[in-house]
Design a protein around this nucleic acid. Structure first.
Length: 565
RNA sequence: GCGCCCGUAGCUCAGCUGGAUAGAGCAGCGGACUUCUAAUCCGCAGGCCACAGGUUCGAAUCCUGUCGGGCGUACCA
């Protein structure tokens, strides 16, 4: 049978065919039919507004257009038991009881993933996220990005992409030097006043200093042993970052450092850029003060400013390795490359994209590279905004956040209830005390409730049917049963659409609708009834289908689905 | 100054590739447990969708401007 996604595609195709049959080529550029969910039950389950869109082009009454389309294909619409023309010219369709029951049975037996389209077709995707430099623990801002990047990865996997999660970090440069020097101050027993301008003041440095003394003695000196301090700090920081990520259940396939990258391809990338000519001039030019110092003429690429990419001393500014890293990702052949960045990286990202386009062409870059930018998180504690800065040591860490929120489940879920480009206030006190009324518990509770019903049914010897039979639809003809079936039938479509647009926050919305749908059903319909085994079995199938949907979507979000609460 | 993002119910936010009466959670008020988990459900109340223009048969959704908030505007990352 057709999956819900396939059904909609097929319905749109039939409607399109009728449009073509009737008007032929008189509207060659006319819109393609689209079938979408009716948001009101009185308009059926599925709806098509194409007649309204055609009205202007064909200069004909939209209702009349809708009627002519229906006259042509009525009776030839799979899975549909009734059609009508309503309002200004919508075509509304009602899914047949049999189709709904069959989809639910399949959901119950095979699970949600079996109903998602294989849009990835095994192609490879690289998702880069977090990419925080190893200068301290991960904080709240990274937390949003970690959760978002991981959920996007899961979503892509759910529709058939082969995903690699990658973490890129800069382990060279001024920041790492400052970190090493800050460590050396603590190591030498100095108080905060000796920490250099712009250095790091977090408590963790004092802790590392102790560990460094234990393993290396106290004979190290900053001027002489810079690499030891910096190397030790980097190692410790990455260790801490991995631990923080594991608190959220996030694992990367690869941690890729700038120092690995530089010998691989930065000079080659510069050569590539140097070969590009724009507006009759070179894209890369050297500074009058030194042939080593290089600029990229970003202004010729529509960007606001030219930028230095290599300094007089031969070292690179941060944009250059970023460009080279992206060229490396393209070179590795991924079919899709996803960057998840915070808003503070937007400008850099635009420059990187512009440089890539200059080398590979706009089409290639826009086809393969997707950039997801998320806005910042403001943390509220006791009604106060918490100012955060890694360097000053004033911040709330990811670990503290998970601890205060109560669990990784709550943390992940709450971060995914906002769309990435919306600013987010995260109220710690609320997250903590809300526990009983938290949206995540609401959803998990629905899952636990269903699990309870399944246990009760098992004791009563009632099972979920394994195959579809015509008898299944009958007991499910009540309004509450149908309402739930209609909702479940739409879940694969919604998840597929979230994957297409890479918007995991819509899944939390879907889950909340799903949980409400189930709770309402539960309130009104008794599932297990020993007097009515066949009806019980049919209703049990609905519960199991619902459980599969909730668990399936939760797993995409990386949130657990408990059987008891 | 310039660029990008946001401004929807008391609070936190969905909805934004234009469509049929603007949604949810929390907070408020009123109801529902001898029955598979009341961490639930049902009802009431709450909105010039920041403001002003424009495009359209139709705008929370698209365009322009204004105001308010965030981020960026480093040879830091």
């Amino acid at each position: 049978m057709m999956s819900p996604v396939q059904l909609r595609t097929e319905l749109a195709r039939r409607l399109d065919r009728s449009i073509k049959d009737i008007w032929g080529d008189s509207s060659p550029d006319g819109p393609h039919a689209e079938v979408s969910r009716s948001d009101n039950l009185e308009f059926g389950d599925l709806s098509c507004n194409t007649p309204l869109k055609l009205a202007g082009i064909l200069r004909e009454n939209p209702r009349r257009i809708a009627e002519r389309i229906l006259d042509d294909c009525r009776g030839d619409l799979p899975g549909i038991s009734a059609v009508s023309v309503d309002g200004p010219g919508f075509i509304n369709m009602t899914l047949s009881q049999g189709h709904l029951a069959e989809v639910c049975l399949n959901l119950a037996v095979k699970g949600l993933k079996a109903h998602l389209p294989d849009t990835g077709r095994g192609r490879s995707a690289l998702v880069e996220f977090v990419s925080s430099n190893p200068t301290g623990p991960l904080t709240v801002g990274h937390c949003r990005q970690a959760v978002l990047g991981d959920a996007i990865s899961n979503l892509l996997e759910a529709v058939g992409w082969k995903v690699s999660r990658e973490y890129y970090y800069n382990d060279g440069g001024r920041q790492m030097r400052l970190l090493g020097e800050s460590l050396s101050v603590r190591y030498a027993g100095g108080d905060g006043s000796d920490i250099p301008e712009g250095g790091y003041r977090g408590d963790y440095l004092t802790r590392w200093a102790g560990e460094l003394r234990e393993s290396m003695g106290d004979g190290l000196d900053w001027e002489r042993d810079r690499d030891s301090f910096i190397g030790f700090a980097e190692e410790k920081a990455m260790e801490m970052i991995r631990e923080d990520l594991s608190l959220l259940g996030i694992e990367f396939d690869r941690f890729f450092s700038e120092s690995e990258l530089i010998p691989l391809g930065v000079e080659a990338a510069i050569d590539g850029l140097s070969a590009v000519e724009v507006d009759g001039g070179r894209l890369v030019y050297s500074d009058p003060s030194s042939p080593v110092k290089l600029w990229i003429r970003f202004t010729a690429l529509g960007r606001p400013k030219d930028r230095v990419i290599r300094r007089e001393d031969g070292s690179y500014t941060y944009r250059m390795p970023d460009i080279a890293y992206h060229m490396d990702k393209f070179r590795r052949g991924y079919d899709m490359i996803v960057d998840v960045f915070g808003a503070d990286h937007l400008d850099t990202s635009r420059d990187v994209v512009a440089a890539l386009e200059a080398i590979m062409g706009e089409r290639e870059v826009s086809r393969r590279l997707k950039v997801v930018i998320h806005q910042f998180v403001t943390l509220l504690r006791g009604g106060e905004r918490i100012k955060m800065s890694t360097r000053s040591g004033e911040y709330v860490t990811l670990a503290e956040l998970v601890e205060e929120a109560g669990s990784a489940d709550v943390t992940r879920y709450l971060f995914l209830t906002r769309r990435p480009d919306a600013h987010m206030d995260f109220d710690l006190d609320l997250a903590r005390k809300e526990s009983g009324e938290n949206p995540v518990y609401y959803v998990q509770y629905a899952h636990a409730r269903i699990s309870g019903i399944l246990r009760t049914a098992e004791e009563a010897g009632i099972r979920v049917p394994v195959e579809y039979t015509d008898g299944l639809a009958g007991p499910l003809s009540g309004d509450h049963e149908r309402e739930l079936m209609r909702l479940l039938e739409s879940v694969p479509v919604e998840v597929a659409s979230c994957a297409e647009s890479m918007e995991p926050h819509k899944l939390t919305e879907l889950l909340s609708v799903l949980a409400t749908g189930f709770h309402r059903f539960y309130q009104h319909v008794r599932v297990v009834d020993v007097e009515d085994p066949s009806g019980s079995s049919a209703r049990l199938m609905l519960c199991q289908a619902c459980r599969q949907c909730i668990a399936g979507v939760l797993s995409v979000l990386g949130v657990s689905a408990p059987d008891r609460m």
